[in-house]
Design a protein around this nucleic acid. Structure first.
Lengths: 227, 227
DNA sequence: GCGTTGCTTTTGTCTGACAATCTGACAAAG
DNA sequence: CTTTGTCAGATTGTCAGACAAAAGCAACGC
């Protein structure tokens, strides 16, 4: 075991690649609202402030653009994507298709996945009710629950698509500072959905989900438009 | 307000960016089977043979990886993605969710989109029946029809996801040289689907689509496994 | 036979550079 | 005073060259 270098490879996997680290940092900054939508992401400035070279920043930006969190215009560079009302509406329509497919697959889904829906729900509701969690923390758990619905389909690709949609949503939510919608009602609503699933009333759950997502879209758009 | 030049904004105007041109070239090579699955994409070799610099190639490769057409392993570089049986199955399951959503939206869809389904179908069937089109051409039109189903949802994001799935499928199809499944039967099957839609028997169409996609998956996987 | 050592290849990243393009301001013309 | 033309600065797109680290491979010694 005379393994000299890289003594501590362990711990929280310290993203090996520099590019991935930069991309992660940019994502964090975007989600936490440090970078407003439309902010230009200057390569030189980022390179200096992050202590990496410009090509590395460029690669990270390409990744961000691929994820839809930023847009690139020729010779004008990359800037933080600006969520519009219709794009939020579209994200939610797409969410309904994906999450709806998960709900419809409830009966035939693997048991561990059903269990996972229950546990992500509980993680969310307890976070809401103890009132200890930060705003970002709540969002995170909320969206994790919705992703767990898509996991019911058992399709990695659908899950990946859902995660991309959630990222776009997180971006939008970061712009409207703190929608303090009644988190308790939200939690109740989710519990209602799972209750319908547990009694195998799939159609009702499906319709319930549609309304739930539609309401969420309305709320976000409303908050977005008064900025 | 005087909007002068840029008379033709759209159309395929010689991909401005070098990176995009390289990415397009790589895509073409992958879809036409010039590059077998698993082939390593060496940066230096590509840079020389395409007459561009290594950073440019790297950026193009990142784009390909983001599209799922290639995979990157740390310090081992990028290689053409290898479609496995379970990934084909997954792609088709995801397709069914997306295209199924389109079918279910038939009644409420915009009329121009319904018309588009009809026209992509006709473009495919005539190509099949005149027997003039190349193999790639047939694939292209076939998949275009399936994308047009997703367009019924009116959601740009769902369409984009569907296109990504089709690209993965094109990659898989490029590996199994020439599945010469009976193209006439295929065309007939599609016409049957649209006929069900025209008489508004949505549930039947939905189930029909499920079987159609399942059959396609089986065929591709079978062909894939004897390579 | 098997593990070790050292070399080669390739990637990941950095530095530096230059042309093309966009932006904004300023001067000239109507 | 508004409009137009031009120019300098800033920023991106692309290139060339370089180096350390890691992976793969082969010869070597035990």
């Amino acid at each position: 075991m005379s393994r000299p270098a890289t003594a501590f490879a362990g711990l929280s996997v310290e993203h090996a690649s520099t590019v991935e680290r930069v991309a992660a940092e940019l994502r964090r900054a975007v989600f936490e609202g440090e970078l407003e939508s439309g902010t230009p992401l200057r390569e030189i400035a980022l390179a200096e402030s992050l202590g990496v070279s410009r090509p590395t920043v460029r690669e990270a930006l390409t990744v961000l653009v691929g994820e839809g969190l930023a847009t690139r215009e020729p010779h004008r560079g990359v800037s933080v994507a600006t969520p519009r009302a219709d794009s939020v509406r579209d994200v939610c329509r797409a969410r309904w298709v994906l999450e709806g497919a998960g709900v419809l697959a409830w009966a035939t889904a693997d048991d561990v996945r059903r269990q996972r829906v229950r546990s992500t729900l509980e993680a969310y509701t307890t976070a809401v009710r103890t009132g200890q969690a930060s705003y970002e923390e709540l969002n995170e758990r909320h969206l994790a629950f919705h992703v767990s619905l898509v996991e019911l389909t058992g399709s990695p690709r659908l899950v990946q698509m859902a995660e991309a949609l959630m990222d776009e949503l997180k971006l939008a939510l970061a712009q409207v500072d703190r929608i303090r919608r009644n988190a308790h009602d939200q939690a109740d609503s989710h519990e209602g959905l799972v209750r319908l699933l547990e009694v195998a009333d799939i159609d009702a759950a499906h319709e319930f989900l549609r309304r739930h997502i539609d309401d969420a879209a309305d709320e976000i758009i409303e908050a977005l438009e008064l900025t």
